[in-house]
């Protein structure tokens, strides 16, 4: 079965929630017109990334009224969009929601908050504490927000929990402009997407944003990589783009028949080994 997915490679406004809501409406309409079942927005698509103290101003509970328009829009197409969540414990977190049929189906909270180099997530946000799969229009799905995907364990845990699709909404800044090559960051991301897809035999959907915030440019290059390691579709670097691609659920089955790496994973051995590494009983 083939399911059409769209990635909204957009440039959110920093701290302008209402403007971003309107921006989402127009991308959702375009994705619908393109016949997509799901549209994936980048990390913090409703708020922008380098919020600093603005984080508190744009925050909302996951089921708050500020997000009602997104929920309503999901009656015609599933929407995966990013926002700052003010949790029930009043902590701010970087969240990505998945809305379907008019309501919120799943929320992932960014677990790995980069706080080094050009990143300062840990100063402004609290971390999520789990990687949970959920059932989406694409099958069993896991969400890995930007830095989450850079940790090998994240896609592994999703695969171990049965995911056939990993959505990775990102705000990846472009840097490293040595002559003759790709942007340093782009090269790393592409390698990662392809490796995870092929060796965990699942789809990787990398939804990166574009635009500039405070002198830092997000490079785009969103892509869908299939479980055989092939790049199904890739958006241009630096420009806004609606990327449309087909996700073929049979391909996951075929690759897993041919290459049953995930089936043969010794979860018991991994679990015991990690338990020992974490200081548990031998």
């Amino acid at each position: 079965m083939s399911i059409r997915i769209a990635i909204a490679q957009c440039a959110p406004a920093l701290g302008a929630f209402e403007r971003n809501l309107a921006m989402h409406d127009s991308w959702i309409a375009r994705a619908k017109a393109a016949g997509a079942r799901v549209v994936v927005f980048p990390e913090l698509s409703l708020t922008g990334y380098y919020l600093k103290d603005l984080a508190a101003d744009v925050a909302t509970p996951a089921t708050g009224e500020r997000l009602e328009r997104i929920a309503a829009a999901s009656k015609g197409i599933d929407v995966c969009a990013g926002f700052v969540e003010r949790g029930p414990d009043a902590v701010l977190r970087i969240a990505q929601g998945y809305w379907s049929g008019g309501s919120l189906v799943h929320v992932h909270r960014k677990v790995y908050l980069p706080t080094y180099g050009i990143f300062d997530d840990g100063r402004y946000f609290g971390p999520g504490d789990r990687f949970e799969t959920f059932s989406s229009a694409l099958g069993t799905t896991g969400i890995a927000i930007c830095e989450d995907l850079w940790h090998v364990s994240t896609p592994y845990l999703y695969a171990a929990a049965g995911a056939t699709v990993v959505l990775s909404p990102s705000d990846s800044p472009g840097r490293g402009v040595a002559e003759g090559g790709d942007l340093g960051t782009a090269e790393s991301c592409r390698l990662m997407d392809r490796f995870y897809a092929q060796y965990l035999t699942l789809y990787v959907v990398f939804a990166n944003r574009v635009g500039t915030e405070d002198g830092i440019a997000f490079w785009g290059g969103s892509e869908v990589v299939a479980p055989d390691g092939s790049v199904v579709a890739r958006a241009p670097d630096f420009d806004e783009h609606l990327l449309v691609a087909e996700i073929d659920t049979h391909l996951v089955a075929r690759e897993r028949d041919r290459n049953p790496l995930v089936r043969d994973e010794r979860r018991d051995v991994v679990h015991a080994q990690l338990g020992r590494a974490a200081g548990g009983p031998d």
Binding site: I118, P173, R175, G176, V177, G184, D214, G215, I216, A217
Partner: peptide, 14 residues
């Protein structure tokens, strides 16, 4: 002033 980040290490950013 904002400095456009292009390199691996940028004054004011990292």
């Amino acid at each position: 002033p904002l400095i456009a980040k292009v390199s691996l290490r940028t004054i004011g950013h990292d």
